[in-house]
Design a protein around this nucleic acid. Sequence first.
DNA 1: CCGTATCCTTAACGATACTG
DNA 2: CAGTATCGTTAAGGATACGG
Lengths: 133, 133
Amino acid sequence: MSVPDLPESEPSLDFAADVFERACPSREVIHTVTGRWGTLALVALGEGPYRFSALRRRVDGVSERMLSQTLQQLERDGFVHRDVQETIPPKVEYTLTARGVQVAAQLQSLIDLVEAQMPDILTDQAAYDARHP
Amino acid sequence: MSVPDLPESEPSLDFAADVFERACPSREVIHTVTGRWGTLALVALGEGPYRFSALRRRVDGVSERMLSQTLQQLERDGFVHRDVQETIPPKVEYTLTARGVQVAAQLQSLIDLVEAQMPDILTDQAAYDARHP
DNA sequence: CCGTATCCTTAACGATACTG
DNA sequence: CAGTATCGTTAAGGATACGG
């Protein structure tokens, strides 16, 4: 009993992703997107296109190295488009792809939620710290 | 010219949170929530209450140490409630607070989005890797 | 201007062993 | 069962300097 040929119209990247499984590739994508700088870069680009330096100023505290690395990962996963203009001096503009717009919107909602509750969260933190000396 | 007294009806935890600012406390909260294990723990608890060991099995790959640490942070920020039953053997149940339900829902949406696009993302990754030898 | 390369420091993580 | 403690390892991160 051999395995019958698959109907191979599409290269069979069709599978069920599940972040709860240790080896699922979706985990690393989620990690890229929700990483310390990934989230901020995506949400910033949700405001509109940015050039490298401007984005670096917007995302306060990020180093050149980490911003560069983060943008590469986001580009690789198809969330960000990198547009190079071969002028002198060179000009590189980063924009969100359609996919990037979707996740940026989700992340923006999450941030809005958390920011709105920050006063209450700080109160809860203080109470917790008082209970755990 | 002295600073006039604030109308202090509330203990003035009223401020504008902004994740883009390096020192804003909302950053660490976002980091807790979107951290490698924070996200998975919150989404798992979105399915219903879990005991420690069951949660550890659900979140495939997490160590005892990291799960414990993650849950403490989530409890401190008021996303998770920890219910201890002093039986023998002891039984500890974790549930989401109202605040936790909100963020878990957001994270679930994000994960659904990413999981749905995983086939396309893998294709994009392969194309990117081919372009960057 | 837009990064990459290098070096170094810190923080995150995992495995294991052990306690209430 | 539900963790904490300790140790060693790995990965993330920052500073700086240099190249296209």
